[in-house]
């Protein structure tokens, strides 16, 4: 069914639709940022499409492989019509890393957009409360960006050094039985 959505969008927004693709029944439209909110409102309000469920917004980071760097991906679904569509907006790094908020269309997009900001550092313009949602205040960087260091840890409490050794008189051979292993700490905890 939903290929009709792509046709309709192309007809209605012409140049605003950069690209469309259909893969095994899943339809996707790449949009210009300017028309995103308008398209969303149209897809929600139009009786034929009735996209009444905002499923998710996330991003794909194409670091060093493509400019603009990010695809911001919106997943929409219609509960009543039982169809769905994917919308994408391409944004670049730095000042260009922003999308308009769709919280005005679906209130439920709020936390997803905060997650988008938190994980990818894509700002959401017009969001009522754009704070981190999963990581804590004071966390540096955005962990799902491809240039976030793989071993980048930002602990909130000082980490103990743990020097672990297997406790000598353990009557159970942990390697034979494979169950609980008792170990002692060298810091006086034994």
């Amino acid at each position: 069914m939903s290929q009709a959505i792509l046709e309709r969008l192309k007809e209605r927004y012409e140049d605003g639709v950069v690209e469309t693709a259909t893969e095994r029944g899943d339809d996707c439209a790449v949009l210009k940022r300017e028309i995103l909110v308008d398209v969303c409102r149209f897809l929600k309000d139009d009786a034929d499409f009735a996209m009444n469920l905002f499923v998710d917004v996330t991003a794909v980071d194409w670091l060093d492989r493509r400019t603009p760097r990010f695809d911001v991906v919106f997943q929409l679904k219609s509960i009543t019509k039982r169809h769905r569509v994917t919308l994408k907006v391409r944004v670049d790094d730095g000042d260009d890393a922003w999308v308009p908020s769709v919280t005005g269309v679906w209130r439920g997009a709020d936390w997803f957009e905060r997650e988008l900001w938190d994980m990818f550092g894509v700002r959401v313009d017009g969001h009522p409360n754009l704070r981190r949602i999963l990581m804590w205040d004071g966390f540096e960087g955005h962990p799902l960006r491809k240039d976030y260091p793989v071993a980048g840890r930002q602990p909130l409490v000082p980490l103990r050094k743990s020097e672990v050794h297997v406790f000598e008189n353990n009557p159970v051979d942990p390697f034979v039985v494979g169950l609980g292993v008792v170990r002692e700490k060298s810091d006086g905890d034994a």
């Binding site: 602990p155 980490l159 103990r160 743990s162 494979g178 609980g180 170990r183 700490k185 810091d187 905890d189």
Partner: peptide, 20 residues
């Protein structure tokens, strides 16, 4: 083994028994 997860609670508090 990622940005979010403590690599064993013995990094925070002393542990007496570990259960695999």
């Amino acid at each position: 083994d990622n940005y979010a997860t403590v690599q064993g609670v013995d990094c925070i508090v002393p542990v007496d028994v570990y259960i695999p």
